[in-house]
Deep mutational scan, measured.
Amino acid sequence: LETFPLDVLVNTAAEDLPRGVDPSRKENYLSDEDFKAVFGMTRSAFANLPLWKQQNLKKEKGLF
């Protein structure tokens, strides 16, 4: 999966995202380093959170 810089994904409308980016899964296009910096946890820890908590975190970080 291709990764993009944080500033390309945060608070970006679906139509302005790079081609192929799923707007409902912007976090998947962050590098592992950016993911950890944004969410303060690994991808696996994030995946283990309840869906509502994942969505709330994504909203807080501008990735929803």
Rank of each mutant, 00 (worst) to 15 (best):
A37V: 13
K61C: 10
K59D: 07
N56S: 12
S24C: 14
G20I: 07
P23C: 06
Y29D: 02
S24I: 07
Y29R: 01
L63Y: 02
L6E: 01
G40E: 15
K53S: 13
V8S: 08
E60I: 10
F35S: 00
W52I: 11
E2I: 14
N11A: 08
F46L: 03
K59I: 14
S24A: 13
D16K: 04
L9G: 02
V21P: 04
N28W: 12
L6Q: 03
A45Q: 13
L30C: 02
P18G: 04
V21I: 10
E60S: 10
F39V: 02
Q55V: 13
G62P: 01
D16A: 07
N11M: 08
G20W: 15
M41F: 05
P23M: 05
S44H: 11
K36S: 14
A45W: 08
D32T: 10
Q55T: 13
E60H: 09
K26D: 03
V38S: 06
A13I: 09
Q55D: 14
K58E: 02
E33P: 10
T42I: 11
N28Q: 14
K53N: 09
R43C: 02
K36C: 14
W52T: 10
E15R: 06
T42Q: 09
L63I: 05
L17Y: 06
L51E: 06
P5G: 06
E33T: 13
N56K: 13
E27S: 01
L57F: 08
E33H: 14
L9F: 12
V38N: 04
Y29L: 03
Q54S: 03
A13C: 11
K36L: 13
D32H: 09
V8G: 02
L6I: 12
Q54F: 00
R25S: 09
M41W: 03
D7P: 06
A47T: 11
P5M: 04
P50E: 08
A14W: 12
F39P: 00
F64T: 13
S44V: 15
V10T: 08
F46C: 00
P23W: 03
R25K: 14
T42F: 07
P5S: 09
K58L: 05
F35Y: 03
S31V: 04
R25W: 07
L63D: 02
L63E: 01
K58D: 00
E15C: 09
W52K: 10
K26S: 03
E2T: 13
E27V: 03
T12C: 10
L9A: 02
K58R: 07
N48R: 11
Y29M: 03
S31F: 03
N28L: 14
S24L: 15
L51G: 10
L30S: 00
T12K: 09
E60L: 11
A13K: 13
R25P: 03
E2G: 13
L57M: 12
Q54D: 00
D7Y: 11
V21W: 05
R25A: 09
K58M: 03
Q55Y: 08
V8D: 05
A14E: 15
N11D: 09
P5E: 06
G62V: 01
T12E: 06
S31R: 08
F64M: 13
Q54P: 00
V21D: 05
N56A: 12
L51R: 12
L1E: 09
L51Y: 11
E27D: 03
L9H: 02
A47E: 10
R25H: 14
N56Q: 13
Y29A: 06
L49T: 04
V21E: 04
D7T: 09
V10C: 07
G62R: 05
S44C: 10
L9P: 02
G62A: 04
E2R: 10
K59F: 10
D7Q: 12
F35Q: 00
L57N: 03
K59L: 15
W52R: 08
L17E: 04
L51M: 13
V38G: 01
L51V: 13
A13M: 08
F46R: 00
A47G: 13
F46M: 02
F46T: 00
K53C: 10
T3F: 15
N11G: 10
F4S: 02
D22E: 05
P23R: 02
L30G: 01
K26M: 13
A47K: 13
S24Q: 14
P5Y: 03
D16G: 07
R43P: 06
R19L: 15
N56Y: 11
F4L: 08
F39E: 00
Y29G: 02
K59W: 10
L17D: 03
F46G: 00
M41N: 00
A45M: 12
F64S: 15
L49D: 00
L17H: 04
F39M: 06
E2A: 14
D16M: 05
D16V: 02
R43N: 05
G40K: 11
V38F: 05
N48F: 10
D32G: 06
M41Y: 06
P5V: 03
F64A: 15
F46E: 00
D22A: 02
D7N: 12
A14H: 11
N56D: 14
G62T: 01
D22Q: 03
G20Y: 07
P23V: 07
M41S: 02
E60N: 09
K58W: 02
K58C: 04
L49Q: 06
P5N: 05
F46I: 00
F4C: 04
F46W: 09
L49A: 04
S24R: 10
N56I: 13
D7G: 09
F35T: 00
K61A: 15
L63T: 01
A37R: 10
K61G: 07
V8I: 13
K59T: 12
L6P: 06
D22L: 03
L17N: 04
E33F: 11
A47F: 09
M41A: 01
L30I: 08
A14L: 12
E2K: 14
T42D: 15
Q55S: 08
L6N: 02
V8Y: 15
K36H: 15
F35K: 00
P5R: 04
L6T: 04
E60M: 11
L9I: 04
E2Y: 11
L30H: 00
E27I: 02
V38Q: 03
V10Y: 07
Y29C: 03
R19P: 15
V21G: 03
K61T: 10
K59Y: 10
N48D: 13
P18S: 01
E33Q: 12
D22M: 02
E27F: 02
S31Y: 02
Q55I: 15
Q54A: 06
P23E: 06
A14F: 09
P5A: 07
K61D: 01
P5T: 07
L1F: 15
N28M: 15
L63G: 01
L57E: 05
D34A: 05
A47I: 08
D7V: 09
T3N: 05
D16S: 07
L63M: 07
L1S: 12
M41P: 00
A47Q: 12
S24M: 14
T42H: 10
L49H: 03
L57S: 04
P50M: 02
T12R: 06
A13V: 08
Q54I: 04
